[in-house]
Design a binder for these strands. Sequence first.
DNA 1: TTTCATAATTGTAATTATTATAAAATTAAA
DNA 2: TTTAATTTTATAATAATTACAATTATGAAA
Lengths: 138, 138
Amino acid sequence: MKEIQNIGSELLRFDIKPSYQRIKIYDYLLKNNIHPTVDMIYKKLADGIPTLSKTTVYNTLKLFEEHGIIKSVNIEENEIRYDVQTHIHGHFKCEQCGAIYDFDYNYNDLKYSGLENFILNQTDVMIKGVCKTCASKN
Amino acid sequence: MKEIQNIGSELLRFDIKPSYQRIKIYDYLLKNNIHPTVDMIYKKLADGIPTLSKTTVYNTLKLFEEHGIIKSVNIEENEIRYDVQTHIHGHFKCEQCGAIYDFDYNYNDLKYSGLENFILNQTDVMIKGVCKTCASKN
DNA sequence: TTTCATAATTGTAATTATTATAAAATTAAA
DNA sequence: TTTAATTTTATAATAATTACAATTATGAAA
Ligand SMILES: [Mn+2]
Ligand SMILES: [Mn+2]
Ligand SMILES: [Zn+2]
Ligand SMILES: [Zn+2]
C-alpha cells in the first residue's frame, strides 16, 4: 500500500489544486487499492459528501491521470478502473470472484519482434484466470 | 494473413452452422486483419447485405468467440475489437494514427511474482506508442 | 469588506457501446 | 406440406461516458 503523509501536498506535488473533493477521491484511492471503477468511487464517497456529482468523479480522475498521479487500467471491456500504483506492474483478473490483483514481472526481459523502429510508451500485461483463494475452494 | 480455403467448412470445424451472415462476417475478418470493432464490421457489410442487423453482428461475434474461432481484444477503453488470429501474440496501438499492430514476444520467458498458486488462463500484452510509419513522419 | 475574475462543482441532457426481448424469416425435420 | 427449431431482425432498455451550461467556491484586487 502506498503511504502518503499529507494528501494535499502530494496533490500539489503533481500540480493539482487540492480541493475538498479531490482530496477525498485521492484519499479513497490510497486506502482502497482495489482498482475501483468510477461508480465504486462515487457510491462510496456519496455517503460522506451528499452533494457529490458523478461528473466531478469523472473530471477528477481524468485530471489525476493527466497529471500522472494515477493510472487508468483497462481490464474489463466495458469500464475503466483506476490505480494509485503508478510503477510498472501487471494485473490479474479472477474470472470467478472478479478481484483484481497486482503482480510484478520481468519487464526488462520482454523481447518483441515486429516492433522494430516503433516508439514504445506504455506496456500493459493483463492475465485472466482463477485466483489462489478461489482455486483452493474448488 | 490467415489462409482459409473454404469458409463454410472452417466454421463447421468449430461447430458453427455456416449461415449466410456468419460466412460473410468471418470472411470479412479473414480479409481485414485490422482488429475491427463491431461498428466497423457492420458498416462495411451493410453495403452488401442491406437487411443486416447490428444485433446479428454482435450475436455472431459472441458465438464465434465462444467457439474459439476468433478472439476479442480489449485495446481501447470503450470498445471491443475482434481478431481472427488466435495464437498468442501482443498488440500495439499507435497513439497517432490509431492503427493496431500484431507482434510476437517471448511468452515462455515471462516470469511473474505474486501469482503463486494462481491458475493462468489467458495472457495479454498491450503496448501503446508511435508506429514506425508515424515516427518517420515526425 | 466588497467586487470581480477564475476555477471547481453540480445537474441534466446527449452520446455510444452493448444487451434484452420478442416478432419475423429461414432452415431442417417429420 | 406441416411443424419445430434456429437464425435474423427491429426495437427498446442499460450502462458508461461526455458535453454543456448553470451554480458555487476561491482568491486576489480595490
Ligand atoms: Mn495495479
Ligand atoms: Mn491480433
Ligand atoms: Zn478469485
Ligand atoms: Zn501510426
